[in-house]
Structures are given as structure tokens and as C-alpha cells.
Amino acid sequence: MTTLINQNPIIYEASAGNSTREWREEDENEDAADPIDAQEVFDLIRSISDPEHPLSLEQLNVTQRDHIQVSDENNTILVEFTPTIPHCSMATLIGLCIRVRLLRCLPSRFKVDISVRKGTHQSEHAVNKQLNDKERVAAALENSHLLEVVNQCLATATSGGVVANIVKGPNPAN
């Protein structure tokens, strides 16, 4: 068994059910536009699984709705995430997963910034720089092994935010 970076993390309750979004009447209205908001972005990333544990990012409190800011009219999104421990070497990988997920799921008009939440990681600056460098992200995804790991983490992600089926399997990041 490979040693895990964080053997015994704290587990948080993931909100039950599909999404914490309540149904509104205008959802059925053909013409009423529903702007993209923080909840929607959160729903996209909360059920991504952690590369180390068979748990979702939401259960590990890596992502929180309150740490996402969205402006639909200015086409900007800021996602901040919190690594489980300050020396977590998985931080970049987690950030990359979020990055790829949003690249695939959001319209390209948005400028998406992804960063480690201030003061939660010892090398946050370096991590942030990597995550927001388009070329480095693209280069990372050329690596087929890495891409496979990312796809595996994303396999559990669903648009409604429900964890489809977190597959407990051998640790992909060995």
C-alpha cells in the first residue's frame, strides 16, 4: 500500500440530494434566461473525486460554494479551493482537475481564474501560477498518463452535483 500524503483527513457532510438549488417557476419558462451563477459552477465541480481518497472534493471541503465568484455579465469566474493540508502535493493536480472540468463545461466566453485559497498552502503562489498559465495547462494535458488521472477524477463529476459513483479503486496517483 502506498503511503498517502494525508492518511486520515476530516470528512464533511456533503449536502444530500441533487443540488441545493430550489426549483423555481421560471425554470419552466422558455424565454426566461437563467444566468450562470456560483451555485451552478459549484455543482459542476463538487462531485469531482479527490485523487487520493475515494471522496468528493465537497466531502473534503476542498471546494465550497462561498469560495466561488461568478459574474455572468462580465464573463469572469474566480474559483478558490482549499487543500486538505498546507503541504499537500496534490494541490496542483486538484486545481488541474477543476480547470479541465470548467474548460469542458463552461462557455468559452468566461475568463476562469483558479487559485488556492489564501494562506492554505505553503507554495500557493507557485501553484496558482501553474494553474492559470494556459500553455502549462495545455502541456500538462499532452501527458497521456496525467490526462488519464484527471479523467478518472472527473468520471464521478455530474452536472447536478450528485456524486454519480465514487469508485473506490487503487490509488491512481502512484
Binding site: 425554470d27 424565454d31 426566461a32 469542458r104 463545461c105 462557455p107 466566453r109 455530474t158 452536472s159 447536478g160
Partner: peptide
């Protein structure tokens, strides 16, 4: 479709695209 005006459609688009 990721930029559809209706959220329900976007949700389906995300699933489909994944």
C-alpha cells in the same frame, strides 16, 4: 449549448459533452 439560456439545457449539455 453550454451557453444555452436555460439551466436545465446547460446541465444536459455538460453531461453530453463529458
Amino acid at each position: 449549448s453550454l451557453d444555452d439560456r436555460k439551466r436545465m439545457v446547460r446541465r444536459e449539455a455538460v453531461e453530453c459533452r463529458s
